[in-house]
Amino acid sequence: MDKLAINTAQNVNLDYKLIGLGERMIAFLIDGIILLTYMTIMENLITISDIFEADAWTRRGFLGLFLLPAFFYSLLCHIFFRGQTVGKMILKIKVVKVDGSPTEWYNLAVRWMLRIVDIWIFSPSIGLLSILLSDKRQRVGDAAAGTVVISVKKKHKISSTILEEINDDYEPVFSNVTQLTDKDVRIIKEAFTISRKNNDFKTLTLLKTKICETLGIESKLYDVQFIDTILKDYNYYTQNM
């Protein structure tokens, strides 16, 4: 199975599955159905609406205007939905840069413009072959834009990394937690998780004492609350640096 290694802000490596032909074709078909439905509705509206009781050329002009969003559908969706169209959202796949970072608008613009090579000039044959033959499952547009398509289905539990779930409005308590390293925090979290599971209160107390000594702080928080706060504070500051 082809995978893409992504390094998070906390230097945790996560492997994501590179998406090949099958899922991309299904997403493409879903988007095609959406576009076809939109185009059919627009055509019917212009046909039955009294507003467009004009000559055929005028109706065609209005139809072309209303169908313009369909022409830019893929580009606009990828930009506004951060690398996804509706089809990709349903399939839980996404376009990212080859280093795993989010795409920029110019990556997506290059990728979209080269659809003319991948899909339209020789039918989809060029795009299909390039995906099948590429090590990173890239079509020509992906290779030129420096992008790949990955699965974003959650396969990694947050507890298996040093990551902590924090709310957007979270307020940190200990600003000097940045003195700790990723290795320190990983050890703290592993010891914290095991000690809580086994109700090992002695280890929790020793862990709190060691953290306080390392950071040169004092706290009246209970052991569990203190260590949990340390983990969340570290994630808050490393995510916002």
Results as ranks from 00 to 15, higher is better:
69 P>I: 00
131 I>Q: 00
96 V>Y: 05
81 F>L: 12
18 L>V: 08
90 I>Y: 11
109 A>I: 14
20 G>K: 10
31 D>H: 04
60 R>T: 12
24 R>I: 04
150 I>L: 10
74 S>R: 15
23 E>Y: 10
130 S>W: 14
114 L>M: 12
71 F>L: 04
54 A>F: 01
44 N>P: 02
93 I>C: 01
32 G>Y: 06
69 P>C: 06
69 P>M: 02
108 L>G: 06
93 I>T: 06
121 I>C: 07
16 Y>G: 03
45 L>C: 08
88 K>G: 03
143 A>M: 15
91 L>P: 01
53 E>D: 14
72 F>L: 11
21 L>M: 12
62 F>K: 02
137 R>G: 00
53 E>M: 12
59 R>E: 09
60 R>L: 09
34 I>N: 00
117 V>Y: 15
85 T>G: 02
25 M>H: 13
99 D>S: 04
116 I>N: 09
18 L>F: 05
28 F>C: 02
51 I>F: 12
64 G>F: 02
24 R>T: 01
107 N>S: 01
94 K>T: 01
65 L>A: 02
41 I>M: 08
44 N>W: 01
64 G>W: 01
121 I>T: 15
107 N>V: 11
46 I>R: 04
112 W>N: 13
115 R>H: 14
30 I>R: 04
100 G>S: 09
96 V>W: 08
146 G>F: 09
35 L>Q: 11
66 F>R: 00
96 V>M: 07
41 I>Y: 04
72 F>R: 06
85 T>M: 02
36 L>N: 13
90 I>D: 04
139 R>T: 00
83 G>K: 11
116 I>C: 08
132 L>K: 14
134 S>F: 03
42 M>S: 00
93 I>G: 06
39 M>H: 10
103 T>Y: 06
121 I>A: 11
88 K>V: 06
111 R>K: 13
119 I>Y: 15
65 L>Q: 05
118 D>A: 01
70 A>S: 01
24 R>Y: 06
50 D>A: 03
134 S>Y: 07
111 R>V: 05
72 F>V: 00
142 D>K: 12
31 D>N: 03
100 G>L: 01
71 F>E: 01
31 D>G: 01
124 P>S: 09
17 K>V: 10
83 G>C: 05
133 L>W: 14
123 S>H: 14
50 D>C: 00
16 Y>I: 05
103 T>R: 09
113 M>E: 09
76 L>V: 14
47 T>P: 05
102 P>M: 07
52 F>V: 09
139 R>E: 02
53 E>Y: 11
50 D>Y: 12
93 I>N: 00
